[in-house]
């Protein structure tokens, strides 16, 4: 039996299949491993960041800082690798610790100062972007043989190259899905999204969970920044402006409720793929302006928000029905 809670996920999946079918019917060439491989590679950094965003939104929050954190990470890595002899792996560890700590600090501010996540992460956005500018205002190229090694890692299937960063994204999603559904932390995230007061009275550690959520989001933005630097071989403080909004869009298209509590990490994966697909279609078409991507995504967002409204409405009706079923329920009780 399909549970009603899975409905949004199924709708996202269906949308993806339908979109792919439409694309493939227009351009049969899109039905290839190469397109799939590129979808994964091109959207890797966005996908990783969107996993973090999913946790944040599931808990009823928002994180506007991730675009800036990604840019900061890139600049930080580029500058470190240019100016010091540190091995990239050490630099990676360093920047991950930094971004995770940054996220945790935002989470702590949100929790202890009882500030709205919107404001705190907006401040975080300016801070991280500012820090990136301080490090360098120009684009700094990354040239390191270890980077070349990583960039040359790929798995070839049918002539299509599945690159390392795509794999990192898929792994992030797998870990994200397991964390959300099979760990206490994940359950606490959902509990927080269901209602903070109630969750508190039920014994959910609100402070630890809130800090954990934003730490995860910050850390994943850091990982996303590493992947982005591998993708572009550079660090630039003006890069990835507005990526947080793309991530939010992917989460919503993935069927997660913006008000928190309902949704799936797996949905976000398909949200990312749908958005990537639109872009690919436009590339294939060649005549359409790339702005069409934005327009289609905007339309999709509207459709999904309407859909969510519809589903919430249906759920409320069901709950009302359930209240009417009290009679049968209490019959079951006696």
């Amino acid at each position: 039996m399909i549970r009603s809670t899975y409905l949004p996920l199924l709708i996202t999946l269906a949308t993806f299949v339908l979109a792919y079918a439409l694309c493939a019917s227009a351009y049969p060439a899109m039905l290839s491993f190469r397109v799939v491989a590129n979808l994964l590679t091109d959207n890797a950094f966005l996908g990783i960041a969107a996993v973090g965003m999913t946790f944040v939104i599931l808990s009823g929050g928002i994180d506007l800082s991730i675009g800036s954190v990604i840019a900061f990470t890139g600049v930080f890595l580029a500058v470190i690798l240019r100016d010091t002899g540190l091995h990239p792996l050490v630099a990676f560890a360093l920047v991950l610790a930094l971004t995770t700590g940054f996220g945790a600090a935002m989470g702590a501010t949100i929790h202890y100062l009882e500030m709205p996540p919107f404001i705190v992460t907006l401040a975080g956005m300016f801070l991280a972007r500012g820090a990136a500018y301080v490090l360098s205002t120009e684009s700094v190229p990354i040239t390191h043989e270890f980077y070349d090694t990583l960039q040359d890692m790929y798995w070839k299937i049918d002539g299509a190259r599945f690159r390392l960063i795509g794999l990192v994204m898929v792994l992030t999603f797998v870990v994200g899905i397991i964390t959300a559904h099979r760990t206490r932390f994940g359950q606490n995230v959902y509990a927080l999204g269901g209602g903070e007061q109630t969750a508190r009275l039920m014994g959910v550690p609100i402070a630890a969970t809130t800090i954990g959520i934003y730490a995860v989001s910050g850390g994943l933005a850091g990982l996303s920044g590493i992947v982005f630097s591998l993708y572009t071989s550079a660090g630039y403080s003006l890069a990835t402006v507005g990526v947080e909004l793309d991530a939010i869009a992917a989460v919503v298209i993935g069927g997660t409720l913006l008000t928190g509590g309902y949704g799936f990490v797996a949905g976000t994966f398909f949200g990312i793929l749908i958005m990537g697909l639109i872009q690919t279609y436009i590339v294939f078409d060649g005549t359409l302006s790339s702005w069409w991507t934005k327009i289609v995504i905007g339309g999709l967002l509207f459709a999904f928000i309407l859909l969510q409204k519809g589903l919430t409405w249906a759920a409320e009706k069901r709950a009302a029905q359930a209240r009417l079923r009290t009679a049968t329920g209490s019959a079951a009780l006696s």
């Binding site: 549970r3 759920a315 069901r318 709950a319 209240r323 009290t326 329920g329 209490s330 009780l333």
Partner: peptide, 11 residues
């Protein structure tokens, strides 16, 4: 395994 919201207040 059903969501709680599907049940009556008494339950």
């Amino acid at each position: 395994a059903e969501p709680l919201s599907g049940y009556s207040v008494a339950i």
